[in-house]
C-alpha cells in the first residue's frame, strides 16, 4: 500500500531522516522512538508537508513524492496530526462534514460516512452541535480521528494519539484502533509503546533518523532493547 524507499530529509543542514525505507500493507503499523527521532518528520514527508531530498514514496503503485498535500489527501491518506488537529470554531458536525467535503469519492456519501463514524465514537453524535473547541481533550482526539475517517481513507496516519490524554482514555483509544485496522491500514507513531503494541501488527523503532529495529508486535514486546528503552521494566 505505502512504500518508502530510501528517503533523506533535512531541516536546513540538519540531517533528520537517513536513507529510511519501510512498508505498510493491509495492517496496523507502529512507529516508535524517542523525541527527536524523526517520527513526525517521516509523517510530514509522507503527506508532502516537507519534501525529501532523495528517495521515493509510493502509494498504491503511484509515486507521490512530489505531489501536493491536498492531492495526496484525495488519493486516500488521512492524517490526524499531533496537536491542534481540529477546527475549534466549527461544531462537531461541521468538523465531520468537512472531513468528507473535499474528497471526491466520499463527497456524496456524507450520511453513510457519518453513520460509520458515529458507530465508532457514539459520543460524537451526542455532541453534534457543540463547538469543537469546547470539548475535553479525549473527545477532541476522537473527533479528529472521526474527521479523518470521514474521508474513507485507505491509510490512516495518527501522530501520537495518546499525547496529553489520561490513561483510561488512552486504552480506550487503542481498543478503537485495533477495531479500525479491520477496515483500513493504520500507521501510528507513539511514545506510549506499551499500549500501542496491543493494537498494532508490526512495529518499527526509529532512532536518530534510522530504523533501528523492525519486527512483529509480539516479538517487539519481548525484545530486550525495547523492554529496556521503551517499556521501562
Amino acid at each position: 500500500m505505502l512504500e518508502i524507499n530510501g528517503i533523506d530529509c533535512y531541516y536546513g543542514k540538519l540531517h533528520v531522516l537517513r536513507n529510511l525505507s519501510f512498508k505498510i500493507g493491509d495492517e496496523a503499523v507502529g512507529l516508535f522512538g524517542p523525541n527527536g527521532a524523526g517520527k513526525t518528520t517521516l509523517i510530514n514527508a509522507i503527506i508532502s508537508l516537507i519534501k525529501p531530498a532523495a528517495g521515493d514514496i509510493i502509494f498504491d503503485g503511484e509515486n507521490i513524492t512530489t505531489s501536493e498535500t491536498h492531492t495526496i489527501a484525495k488519493k486516500g491518506i488521512a492524517l490526524v496530526p499531533q496537536e491542534r488537529e481540529l477546527f475549534p470554531e466549527m461544531t462537531v458536525y461541521e468538523n465531520l462534514e468537512l472531513g468528507a467535503a473535499f474528497i471526491p469519492h466520499v463527497k456524496n456519501r456524507t450520511a453513510e460516512r457519518l453513520e460509520f463514524v458515529y458507530n465508532f465514537f457514539p459520543v460524537l453524535k451526542e455532541r453534534e452541535k457543540q463547538h469543537a473547541g469546547t470539548m475535553s481533550g479525549g473527545q477532541q482526539r476522537m473527533l479528529a480521528i472521526g474527521r479523518a475517517l470521514m474521508a474513507d481513507p485507505k491509510l490512516l496516519i495518527l501522530d501520537e494519539p495518546s499525547l496529553g490524554l489520561q490513561p483510561s482514555i488512552v486504552s480506550e483509544l487503542f481498543e478503537k484502533l485495533a477495531e479500525m485496522k479491520k477496515h483500513i491500514s493504520v500507521l501510528v507513531t507513539e511514545q506510549n509503546v506499551r499500549e500501542s503494541l496491543k493494537s498494532v501488527d508490526r512495529g518499527y523503532v526509529l532512532e536518530n533518523g534510522e530504523i533501528a529495529l523492525e519486527d512483529t508486535a509480539e516479538n517487539l514486546k519481548s525484545n530486550p532493547h525495547v523492554i529496556k528503552a521503551y517499556l521501562g521494566i
Partner: peptide
C-alpha cells in the same frame, strides 16, 4: 474557516 483555523489540517483534508 479551515484555512483560517489550521492550514495543515485544511491541506490534509484535501483542500487546495
Amino acid at each position: 474557516t479551515a484555512i483560517r483555523n489550521n492550514e495543515v489540517v485544511a491541506k490534509s483534508s484535501g483542500i487546495n
